[in-house]
Amino acid sequence: MIREPVLTAENISKQVISPEGGLTILSNVSLSVDPGESVAIVGASGAGKSTLLALLAGLDLPSEGTIFLNGANLTELSEDGRAQVRADSVGFVFQSFHLVPSLNALENVMLPLELAGRKTPRQAASEVLRRVGLSDRWSHYPAQLSGGEKQRVAIGRAFATEPAVLFADEPTGNLDSRTGETIMDLMFEMNRNSSTTLLLVTHDKSLAARCDRVIGLDAGRLVSDTRAAA
């Protein structure tokens, strides 16, 4: 049986206008990702990793090419339309956590559930917090949490809606290596349990090695695409 890919990019390019003139950040990248796959995007600084992630998640639009996310053509949707797709099918984990400072841990996890219009968001969020091991800290505000705890909340928030695709941008970049290790364990465990597709941008080779597939970028071009031996 041929599985329908959850994410497809066809010949996408991204140019920006800079003071020095036009600048090509991504050029002619095509890829497709199957449901449940875990994919690492690696490359040197400025290779275009984050730009690719932003385009695939619909945070930005490509200059050329088309992107399908969970059946929706992102390049044809309005900003609010793309927001709706993200609410339904996407979760994010960021390097700098990006929690809403004026909401407590539980409320931060509830946020995507509520934005997607899910029922009983409070119970669902409590359950997620239990799974990331922060049941007793639900009422803490981000400022009262350590870096590792913040990232746990962020992971909880990302998985709360059981999204089709989870995007992670250097999720361990702001953590010490031991905490980073634990966080990644948690992320892969959640990924397995919820059969979510995982797409992460990283510098960390050992982290990339834990993924099913590693895509290499260099100067805006896709230079390698290797699958781990099954």
């Binding site: 945070l59 900003e79 609010d80 927001a83 709706q84 993200r86 994010f92 809403v100 934005l115």
Partner: peptide, 10 residues
């Protein structure tokens, strides 16, 4: 952030 989580402009 809210937008990335799916909030609309409105």
């Amino acid at each position: 952030l809210m937008k990335s989580l799916g909030a609309t402009q409105g």
